[in-house]
Amino acid sequence: MGKRVLVIEDEPNITEAIRFFLSRDGWEVFAHSKGHDALEVIAHRKPDLLILDVMLPGRSGYEILRDLREQPEWTELPVLMLTARGQAKDREMAAEAGASRFMTKPFSNSDILEAVRELAPV
């Protein structure tokens, strides 16, 4: 069994694409599309890596990440943040919230793959 990755993303098509190439790379991929219950889902799935979208229904990715980092067991969890808004401000906010890596949509699949391998080496 490979490592577990949780993708929290409200666009089902994007989730589908990520699932496609990560599972082929040996990841066990879980997906969730809402923000408000994201923390419970994380606690439940206990991923080795989190891919988190910023614009989510119910709660923004930044807020989720901030709360997550306050819990001791998740301080070291690698988190790759994705956003469709590519401004410098967004990058700063992601870093502040505790993101391990920040990537702008649209992304190249190979870039995601590379980042994931770096953040959570198998």
């Binding site: 994007i14 694409a17 614009m55 702008t104």
Partner: peptide, 13 residues
């Protein structure tokens, strides 16, 4: 930006 990038992300991926 978000509205344009979201469909483009799917298309590219």
């Amino acid at each position: 930006s978000h509205e344009l990038r979201t469909p483009m992300t799917s298309i590219r991926a």
